[in-house]
Write a protein that binds this DNA or RNA. Sequence first.
DNA 1: TAAATTAGTTAGGCTAATCTAACAATATAT
DNA 2: ATATATTGTTAGATTAGCCTAACTAATTTA
Lengths: 220, 220
Amino acid sequence: MLSYTEENYLKALLKLSSQNQEKPEAGTNEMAAYLGVKPATATDMLKKLKEKGLVSYEKYGKILLTAIGRQNGIAILRKHRLWETFLYEKLDFSWDEVHEVAEQLEHIQSAKLVNKLEEFLDFPEFDPHGDPIPNSKGEMPVVIKTLLSEIEPGATCRVIAVKDTSKAFLQYLEKLQITIGTVLKIIEVINFDRSVNIQIAGSEARNVSMKFADSLFVCR
Amino acid sequence: MLSYTEENYLKALLKLSSQNQEKPEAGTNEMAAYLGVKPATATDMLKKLKEKGLVSYEKYGKILLTAIGRQNGIAILRKHRLWETFLYEKLDFSWDEVHEVAEQLEHIQSAKLVNKLEEFLDFPEFDPHGDPIPNSKGEMPVVIKTLLSEIEPGATCRVIAVKDTSKAFLQYLEKLQITIGTVLKIIEVINFDRSVNIQIAGSEARNVSMKFADSLFVCR
DNA sequence: TAAATTAGTTAGGCTAATCTAACAATATAT
DNA sequence: ATATATTGTTAGATTAGCCTAACTAATTTA
Ligand SMILES: [Mn+2]
Ligand SMILES: [Mn+2]
Ligand SMILES: [Mn+2]
Ligand SMILES: [Mn+2]
């Protein structure tokens, strides 16, 4: 049985490994920063997780999930995303509110609960932010995600996920009436400040920052 | 903000106060036994709860909830019963499975979640065991509950709640096809062993123990 | 390559929640 | 009323998860 805290470390490691692909390991400071603790605290916990066979880690070395650690991390992620979907679909939460509560719900221990929840939600494949939901075997759809910033001017694309899940960004998207599935057309990239002119679902053009364009995943 | 453990103490105290009416206080050992900890542990926690103004308690004296403590306890109970209802109604849990998971879910902190959940469940008044669900103001229906053992032979009554919520009892009820709302008729009480002959929903008579009859709440 | 910077560890301490063992107060029985 | 049993408290220890301060290793820069 894993503690609440141990679970959070595994999930954090999974997240940190899977962003920057080709860099499946993490550092102590990186982990600590992500989890909002001090590096000394992370060192302690990493030793414990190593003892339990959940991470591979040598003093001053890089941190990697073991197969078991990964499996456990994915189980938490599965619960997190299923709960987010529940809150969004069934309880009318907005997509900037779900994460906070799912952070708590993901730690509820009951195999039956998660499987019944999945069934109740009709086996969703993606959470409200467009992230894939692992199935009960830990498998999830692999989707080719392109950043909006990588789309050529003139081209059209469809929003499939958010990279940044902060309230500020999600609320801004809401205001712009951009959601998962919205079709965007890149008009042009302004050379001066690298801001981007986009057309949202066929309406009149709008200017957004490059930071914005770096925070949205789309497919062509 | 209350800790997970503090919440459990308040809920326990609420439970212990409300069973034996005319005895709204509890003892240290009683609390400890109920919570599965040692009396020394309970003493420590009670001092802390007193510090926080949640219980009134003097060394070697009886333990009582303050108004604030009671209010907090009721909020936990509300969540517990709403979650039980959710699991039972929406996720097909059986009534002997819901309690365990609700013990975890009751500690999730989100006012919005509990209120939306209540709405989603269509403002249920009773949980799967027939216990009243406090509303958002902390009020709950007062129901006159009679033990099956107090019903006179010859009389008919309707099951409204279970007093014992153990798996063993609930599964036995299931087997007997007794649920909330089932109509029972007392045929006779056997003098020899005080066992009770009952008719379940009009079917042929059956014999149950006095312990059984002491574990079911009915109304006439 | 030597110095400076960044990353990571260790030692020692704190708090919440638990325990055991010894003790003290209260209640019960003879 | 005294002895006994029950109930509750205290002292001291443990564990998990966190911290700060001081240190060490690894990496980057000049
Ligand atoms: Mn999330
Ligand atoms: Mn979490
Ligand atoms: Mn229950
Ligand atoms: Mn509980």
